[in-house]
Amino acid sequence: MSAGGRFRGARVLVTGGGRNIGRAIVERFAGEGAHVAINTLAEGEADELAKQLSTDERRAIAVPADVSDPTAVEQMLTRVHSELGGIDVLVNNAAVPMLGRVPFFELTLTEWDRQFAVGARGTYLCTRAAAERMGPGGCVVNISSIGATKAHRDAVAYDATKGAIESFTRAAALELAPHGLRVNAIAPGAISNDRFQGIPSAVQAAEVTPIPLGRAGTGDEVAGVATFLASDDAAYITGQVITIDGGLSVQARQATSEVELESERGGTT
């Protein structure tokens, strides 16, 4: 994982790597020479991507597994270690997406438990299994959300899970530092993915309006930070959460409509 060749020869596992942010991260690591293991929940979902990314110089394999299942996780990491020859970088991206907003009193225990099973439990299980196989210099990157610190309305289970991931990131960084391993996290804001593209244009505009940079981010921009955190350039960084939100969270107050924006600029209402 040198700064020159970046990830040539490195072994990288990305959970939830079949689409959106996860896929962008897989493609970025592969593009910089890494051997990649692409985890998805569904059998066969990442096979085509693995074929596309495999070359004479690098390997790409699909490793379907439910990250909330300790037996499945152990089998997945054993396979990664066997087929790629080890593991240097783990990206914990698997999550239950925030597809629809659920008011507090309509949230079911089943949904709460599923969010934590995949997000928090899965992050712990994969980190532990990977850390047991990593040598000094190994790195874990967890994908959180701005919802960990700036709550979304009607998304209490999702936001609580992301908060747990950020607490885990700091605690795991402290515990694993003596073993030469680093643990960091990324907290994306609005990202133009399948969910974002699937909502009405008016809703997209409402989400983008408060963002100082005036647009949603891209999966490739998240991937750029993930590869930085896994590189030697970040060798002295651990236990940190890097926010990627176009400046949304730095505001004292987030305007939510054109009227409010005009008022904040000093215009008339």
Rank of each mutant, 00 (worst) to 15 (best):
M1Y: 10
M1Q: 11
A3Q: 00
G5M: 09
G5R: 12
F7E: 04
A10I: 03
V14T: 07
T15Y: 12
G18H: 04
R19E: 06
I25K: 05
V26R: 05
A34R: 03
A34K: 07
N39A: 08
T40A: 06
T40V: 04
A42G: 02
E45M: 10
E45W: 10
D47T: 12
Q52S: 14
L53Q: 02
L53F: 06
S54D: 07
T55D: 09
R58Q: 14
A65H: 13
D69V: 00
P70R: 13
P70I: 02
P70L: 10
V73D: 13
Q75W: 02
T78P: 00
R79Y: 10
R79N: 06
H81K: 13
S82F: 12
L84D: 08
V89A: 11
P97M: 13
G100Q: 15
V102C: 12
E106I: 07
L107S: 05
T108V: 04
T108R: 11
L109N: 11
W112N: 09
W112H: 05
Q115N: 15
Q115V: 12
Q115G: 07
F116W: 13
F116T: 13
T123E: 02
T123H: 02
L125M: 08
L125G: 01
A130M: 04
M134C: 08
M134L: 01
M134P: 10
P136H: 02
P136G: 07
G138S: 08
V140Y: 01
N142G: 12
G147W: 09
A148H: 09
T149S: 10
T149R: 14
H152F: 11
H152C: 04
R153M: 14
D154W: 09
V156T: 14
Y158Q: 08
Y158E: 10
D159S: 12
D159Y: 09
T161M: 15
T161L: 06
K162F: 05
F168R: 07
A172L: 04
A172H: 06
L174I: 12
L174S: 14
L176Y: 04
P178C: 11
G180H: 07
L181E: 03
L181A: 00
L181H: 06
L181I: 15
I186L: 13
I186N: 10
A187E: 01
A187D: 05
I191E: 01
N193H: 08
N193T: 15
D194K: 14
D194Q: 13
R195L: 14
Q197T: 12
G198N: 10
I199C: 08
V208F: 03
V208P: 02
V208N: 03
I211F: 03
L213A: 08
T218N: 03
A223S: 13
A223N: 03
A226H: 07
A226M: 11
A226W: 00
A226E: 02
T227W: 00
L229N: 08
L229S: 01
A230W: 00
S231H: 05
A234T: 14
Y236R: 06
Y236E: 00
Y236Q: 09
I237E: 05
G239F: 12
Q240K: 10
I244W: 09
I244N: 09
G246H: 04
G247T: 07
L248Y: 15
S249P: 09
A252F: 08
R253F: 14
E258D: 15
E260D: 11
E260S: 04
S263L: 10
E264S: 06
E264R: 03
